[in-house]
Design a binder for these strands. Structure first.
Length: 818
RNA sequence: GGGCGGUUAGCUCAGUUGGGAGAGCACCAGCUCGACAAGCUGGGGGUCACUGGUUCGAGCCCAGUACCGCCCACCA
């Protein structure tokens, strides 16, 4: 043990926190032990993007997980908090591509191999800073076990997963419409598409009947927000029971500009009430139209390329234009041909790439897909049966709804950074799927193989995080010791992307759920209620908060404010945490001043000592219930009031005179009570508690691994022992009226309230004011008890409580001679 | 379009089977007490969004309205 440092009146977290963070890690106290016999408690950190920096969500989530981990470590569990990073395919590739552009080159120019090499180089230089920032928060991750989704072992796990699904028959290649981001130059999944309201123009265009017989007006009008896609129209659809159009079904109309004759078809996916009730069908560029087109056997024409430019069988002058330019041309053409009925402004939600913000281009493309119904089934059961519980529970139902209506998963991305698909083609077009590069085509045996160039969706590998980090697919000691895990704590927005897929992958590959509790933590908004975001300038850097107030205060504050679904960040709770740390520090100074060779030992003699030990024990039980329910805001609130109100304002003040008098029993008991208080606070505020712990005499273990206090019923009967004194103090402070007290109560009263120093009015306080107050209370109670219906229908306990209150007020009034 | 959450003190938020509206911050007043002025004690401040209903009794339960936010979504 190091020498006891001088304890200054003001607790300064700087230096102290970093010192303990280094000590805990260097002494191996964060380490999980795969060979331990103790029950395990496992949380895998949501792997942050390897390019990213700590934001407020990380800080809150890190605090939640660390508090649980530290609590269980003290309770004797073999804890593993698994650290690591996600390679974050699109995000990382975008960062490095941006850098290449600044250098005047591009990934296409330097080629795939050099580009991937460049990404690794970038990561070694700038990536992977978050784990250092997690350390600064005091996070007790087992840093020696850090994993990366692009580690060789992890890649092997991803390949195994893919081949497994392929062999199950759930992986297939299909030419379907996908969400194409022209900026990222890749497909993205439905979950990565963000719908944003935009103002568009709705163009009403007339399609002339090909066999114009004079009946009606000889045309049908359709509405579109994307006039350029008219060039790829292959049909017009109407609702089968829409009487306006029944006579048109089966006839042909002429697509403007290109002059193509296309059929009028009937489909009940058309909404008769919208627009004109006639829908132009563009299977190549619209998801609904694609489905309708497939069902009616229509061709899929493409007029917009992967670069967002016009291509295909269209007038030469349009080739190479943007969709918008081409659209303007089409509208102008319609106007000249008198086929433009009208244009009106129209506000609607349009899909955008959530990473680049670019408007999604629905395109037909040959991609790899994963059929997910079979994977989802066990996950659905796990949630329905309650084996996996969400906190708050509402998110379980949301997760369930998604799983129940799950759709095929587009798993291929047209990127270079990521896990390249383990798919090889031979010149004859045969497909070989294997974990490692095969020698020959599985079908025809030719050795001439070409690997598919696409990489897998980043979330495909994230799905394996709870067990690929433990060595799966190998049967390792870590996997046996730490799977299944216990808790997953994460942000609301990745329930589908990540949580559900971990459930599916874990159940499919290991036959068991990866965790039984899912915590969905609050979203912390900027103080003005907007999202915290760098680009909006509304972000608050948690490292700045730690710098200014300390990690303990930051942890406390984040837990305190994280009660609702969304919560505005404010410094109030952080300040509260800082005050709590300072208060704790100072009460420790009081109890440790002139401590001599007294060691902690609970041997209570007086009322206030039995009382505080009872209060600490009941708070321990309540705290455990809060933590078991993942109710962190209540847990820290409880700790605050235990420390301030009970421990400092009442107990410490009451026992102070005996400490000054050199009462060694009082001293030893005080230290024992402080010990227990420190233990309860440690999971939330690890640094200040460890620092004080180190100052306690004869301390041979670290608080971080000190045993969590068990139930202590010895003084339970004394938990209300101070009620009389506290009421007397309240009365005295309110009106200066003294209450007759027993000798030991009087001693506590005098120590805590110190009437001789003013505050009230002494024995001659305002007795009449107090009588008046009591008469008011009595009147109210009498009124309630006079209400027959209340007496008849209210629960007996409530009525009885009211009677007791009345009796007490009357006694008190009598004592005041009223 | 569908679903979910929210609306309580100036601010950020609690309020646990319906039974006297709370905390922290801010504000005001008083305390230089042998841990802490980054402290202590006390105080002011609320039509619990609105309307109706159930009940002896509603912040809480029911119906509806308004506003804010989130998620999902193939009405062009």
């Amino acid at each position: 043990m190091e020498p006891r440092p001088h304890m200054e009146p003001l607790y300064r977290p700087h230096g102290v926190e970093e010192r303990w963070q280094r000590a805990w890690e260097e002494e191996g106290l964060y380490r999980a032990d795969p060979s331990s016999d103790a029950p395990s408690y496992v949380i895998a950190v949501p792997p942050p993007n390897v390019t990213g920096a700590l934001h407020m969500g990380h800080a809150l989530n890190g605090t939640i997980q660390d508090s649980l981990i530290r609590w269980h470590r003290m309770r004797g569990f073999n804890t593993l908090w698994q650290p690591g990073y996600d390679h974050a395919g699109i995000a990382t590739q975008a960062v490095v591509e941006r850098e290449l552009r600044r250098e005047g080159t591009s990934r296409q120019e330097i080629g795939r191999e050099a580009f991937v090499e460049r990404v690794w180089q970038w990561l070694h230089e700038y990536g992977g800073v978050i784990m250092g920032q997690f350390r600064r928060l005091g996070s007790s991750l087992d840093y020696e076990r850090e994993r990366f989704t692009m580690d060789d072992d992890y890649i092997r796990a991803v390949m195994r997963f893919f081949v497994h699904l392929y062999e199950r028959g759930w992986i297939y290649r299909d030419n379907r419409i996908i969400n194409w981001c022209p900026d990222c130059r890749t497909s993205i999944s439905d979950l990565e598409v963000e719908h944003i309201e935009v103002d568009d123009a709705l163009t009403y265009a007339r399609y002339l009947l090909a066999d114009g017989d004079g009946a009606g007006d000889g045309y049908v009008t359709v509405a579109t927000v994307r006039p350029a896609t008219i060039l790829a129209d292959v049909a017009v659809a109407v609702h089968p029971s829409d009487e306006r159009y029944t006579q048109l079904i089966g006839r042909e109309v002429i697509v403007p500009v290109v002059g193509r004759k296309v059929p009028v078809i009937a489909d009940d996916r058309v909404e008769p009430e919208f627009g004109t009730g006639a829908l132009k069908i563009t299977p190549g560029h619209d998801p609904v139209d694609f489905e309708i087109g497939r069902d009616h056997g229509l061709p899929e024409l493409t007029v917009i390329g992967f670069d967002g430019r016009m291509i295909g069988d269209i007038p030469d002058m349009l080739v190479g234009l943007t969709e918008e330019e081409a659209g303007d041309y089409v509208v102008e053409w319609l106007r000249e041909e008198k086929l433009l009925e009208k244009r009106e402004s129209y506000r609607h939600a349009v899909g955008h790439c959530e990473r680049s913000g670019t408007r999604i281009q629905p395109l037909v493309s040959l991609q790899w897909w994963c059929a997910t119904e079979e994977l989802a089934r066990p996950a659905i059961d796990a949630i329905q049966s309650g084996r996996v519980r969400f906190h708050p529970p509402v998110h379980g139902r949301v997760a369930l709804d998604w799983l129940t209506a799950i759709r095929p998963w587009n798993v291929s991305r047209q990127l270079w950074w990521g896990h390249q698909l383990p798919i090889w083609y031979c010149p004859d077009g045969h497909v070989t799927c294997a974990e490692t590069e095969p020698d020959a085509c599985a079908e025809c045996g030719t050795a001439e193989l070409r690997r598919d160039e696409d990489v897998l969706d980043t979330w495909f590998s994230s799905a394996l995080w709870p067990f690929a980090t433990l060595g799966w697919p190998d049967d390792t000691p870590a996997l046996r010791a730490f799977y299944p895990g216990d808790v997953n704590s994460t942000a609301r927005e990745i329930i589908f992307l990540w949580v559900n897929r971990m459930l599916m992958a874990g159940l499919e590959l290991l036959g068991d759920i990866p965790f039984h509790d899912v915590i969905i933590h609050s979203t912390i908004l900027a103080p003005d209620g907007r999202r915290m975001s760098k680009s909006l300038g509304t972000g608050i850097d948690p490292l700045d908060v730690i710098e200014a107030h300390g990690a303990d205060a930051t942890r406390y504050g984040l837990l305190k404010m994280s009660s609702g679904q969304d919560v505005r960040f404010s410094y109030g709770p952080i300040e509260e945490g800082r005050k709590l740390a300072n208060k704790l520090w100072n009460v420790a100074r009081l109890l440790l001043a002139d401590v001599g060779d007294v060691v902690p030992d609970a041997r209570p003699r007086e009322l206030e000592e039995r009382w505080i030990l009872a209060r600490i024990d009941t708070t321990r039980a309540e705290l455990e219930a809060d933590l078991d329910a993942f109710d962190f805001a209540h847990a820290v609130d409880r700790l605050y009031h235990l420390t301030f109100d009970d421990f400092c304002d009442w107990y410490a003040e009451a026992v102070k005179p005996r400490l000054y008098a050199g009462d060694e029993d009082a001293r030893a008991t005080a230290l024992a009570a402080l010990e227990r208080l420190l233990k309860l606070l440690h999971p939330v505020m690890p640094h200040v508690t460890e620092e004080i712990w180190a100052n306690l005499p004869r301390r041979e273990t670290r608080l971080i691994v000190a045993p969590w206090p068990g139930p202590d019923e010895r003084f339970a009967a004394d938990v209300g022992a101070l009620v009389g004194v506290q009421e007397a103090a309240e009365r005295f402070r309110r009106s200066g009226v003294s209450t007759p007290l027993e000798a030991d109560e009087k001693r506590i009263f005098d120590a805590v309230v110190r009437p001789e120093r003013g505050g009230g009015g002494g024995e001659n306080g305002n007795i009449e004011a107090e009588r008046e107050r009591l008469r008011g209370e009595i009147a109210r109670a009498e009124e309630m008890l006079a209400n027959e219906r209340f007496v008849e229908r209210a629960p007996a306990a409530v009525v009885e409580a009211e009677r007791e209150k009345l009796e007490r007020y009357r006694r008190e009034l009598d004592a005041l001679g009223g």
